[in-house]
């Protein structure tokens, strides 16, 4: 390795340490016996996980977040796939408007959207409701789902649907039996990303939370702001595992998608 390359590698690995350091520091603390957060952790215990899983408030917020995230994933997958399909198969004229609607909610800072939704939902009686969260999270997760689905849809030869129709399939059946199965891995990974985005979403959750129903990120925010208990590292471990799981699932789905596509004469 020449000196220049050595320098580059040293620099990059230093940056990677910077990137990983906070996570590497917080994770072991979940197993520490002390009630205050200190590094290196002392002792070894799973009691903080126990505390998390037995505390009704943490559990309630976790399930609330899961419910919202699942509904957001389904909403974005269905609504996003429908719209993307129409766009790719004929509504090119609407492309610009579609993109503006799609990108708008993530270009505008989350704080702006959160405040706007807070005001609107207060008046509409949607504050703190599942529907309110699902609506809000769906618009910010939508681009991720749509781009994942669009990438798959544009690579599916439209002639496949022609072929299905020439075989006697209706347009809907051509989509259901041919196109959908081919793009399904992408639709599912798009839904997975929407799930994670919703599940982790802190800003809108901060403003929309009712007095009773708080999402997990909102509970975490309060805990970090007030006393930062070792339950946070325990949750960090769980969330990191979830992220790894989703990334692995996405990789598996990508592999499946590639296999699905492989057939077109190369």
């Amino acid at each position: 390795m020449n000196p220049r390359s050595l320098l580059l590698h040293a620099y990059v690995y230093a940056v990677l340490v910077f990137i990983l350091l906070p996570i590497l520091v917080i994770l072991p603390m979940a197993f520490s016996e002390t009630t205050y957060l200190t590094f290196p952790p002392q002792g070894l215990t799973l009691s903080w996980f126990g505390d998390f899983f037995t505390d009704s408030r943490w559990m309630a917020s976790t399930w609330f977040s899961v419910k919202i995230a699942v509904l957001t994933a389904i909403t974005t997958a269905v609504v996003g796939t429908m719209a993307t399909y129409a766009l790719v198969r004929g509504a090119n004229a609407m492309g610009t408007l579609f993109q503006a609607f799609l990108i708008g909610p993530i270009v505008v800072p989350h704080i702006a959207l959160a405040v706007a939704l807070y005001l609107f939902f207060q008046n509409a009686g949607l504050s703190g409701t599942t529907l309110g969260y699902v609506l809000a999270h769906s618009v910010i997760a939508m681009p991720f789902t749509v781009f994942t689905v669009a990438a798959a849809l544009t690579s599916v030869d439209p002639a496949l649907e022609d072929a299905a129709m020439s075989c006697g399939a209706s347009r809907f059946n051509a989509f259901r039996l041919v196109t959908l199965p081919i793009i399904l891995p992408n639709v599912i990974s798009g839904a997975l990303f929407a799930f994670i985005i919703s599940f982790d979403e802190p800003v809108i959750a901060f403003f929309l939370a009712g007095i009773r129903d708080k999402t997990l990120p909102r509970m975490m925010f309060d805990d970090i702001e007030q006393n930062l208990t070792p339950i946070i590292p325990a949750i960090a471990v769980l969330l990191t595992l979830l992220s790894i799981l989703v990334l692995l699932a996405a990789a598996v789905l990508k592999h499946m998608a590639d296999r699905n596509k492989g057939a077109e004469g190369q």
């Binding site: 906070p22 996570i23 917080i26 975490m220 930062l228 590292p233 960090a236 969330l239 990191t240």
Partner: peptide, 17 residues
């Protein structure tokens, strides 16, 4: 990995550090 892990977790980690 950090990209897909919670912003709150990473912020809490910095608070601890």
């Amino acid at each position: 990995l950090p990209f897909w892990s919670s912003v709150l977790v990473r912020t809490a980690a910095w608070a601890i550090l």
